[in-house]
Design a binder for these strands. Structure first.
Lengths: 152, 152
DNA sequence: TATGAAAGACCGCTCCC
DNA sequence: GGGAGCGGTCTTTCATA
């Protein structure tokens, strides 16, 4: 779990696996002109170092009927209400991300909803029922032109 | 690619595969008391329906030295500058997500940086050099207590 | 110490019930 | 939807530089 300085080969492997986690090692080996055993060793090292955490399938939220993506800036009445608010937000499945932030808002959340009506329902009947919340500001996402991950 | 109404078994499979895309079908079969063949059929159906898009490894940004996560609300001088701005933002590897939003900002981006100094560098020497940008507002994320995906 | 090659185990895919 | 055999992939081990 110590720090491990990745080299160009590691980086290339990461790129490939971030695109498709099931890329055969043999193919990576061919692509990067090394042996499959080497690929295996590198992947194992990065797993040990905690760089590669696991694999997961990518889901299309749209295909599942979730068309509306929005961000909501939340202001709390008192900063001390932060933990309990997070706990309550966690109970709403539409809240997919939450951040404790400096700046304009206390908490910043990402919400996925099926429709605008659904979003309205989530806002009024879920989020705004939390007592500790003073006010919210909603940013509806119309497009998501960039979506990727950091790669040094 | 048509719409496909998923049932409880599909949902369970999705959950399992979102946690670990390499879970053996035989194990899923045992867990949900069906045969491995059935798991295969369901996964294939969801792939066909476009619900499952692929698999990717999960990377620890922290382990790679990226400790600072922040959101930046961007205001443009003119709405028409949107496409060219996105194009320029795409060129900065630290910009990992971008949204075209209604509300306070024209564009909303997520930035990953190594350190606060690095973030400052990205802001001053990259983002704020874009001519079309009128102003920016930065929200630094101190914690990310909720991070998951929609699952109906 | 890191790489390359080969053998064995495991998994996923396909056919048939 | 369930079960069995084939093919492919991952993993491991050993030899090598």
């Amino acid at each position: 779990m110590e720090n491990y300085q990745i080299d160009n080969l590691d980086k290339s492997i990461l790129h490939a696996l971030m695109d498709n986690a099931r890329t055969p090692y043999a193919e990576l080996a061919k692509r990067f002109a090394v042996s499959a055993g080497t690929i295996h060793v590198r992947v194992e090292k990065m797993k040990q170092a905690g760089i590669i955490q696991g694999t997961k399938v990518t889901i299309s939220a749209k295909r599942l009927g979730y068309d509306v993506c929005c961000f909501i800036g939340v202001n709390l009445k008192h900063a001390r209400d932060y933990p309990s608010t997070i706990e309550q937000l966690q109970g709403f499945e539409e809240v997919v991300e939450a951040y404790y932030t400096t700046g304009n808002y206390s908490i910043f959340i990402k919400v996925m909803a099926r429709t605008i009506d659904h979003l309205q329902d989530v806002l009024i009947n879920k989020i705004q029922t939390i007592e500790a919340i003073q006010s919210t500001e909603t940013l509806i996402s119309l497009q998501n032109p960039i979506a990727r991950e950091v790669i040094p």
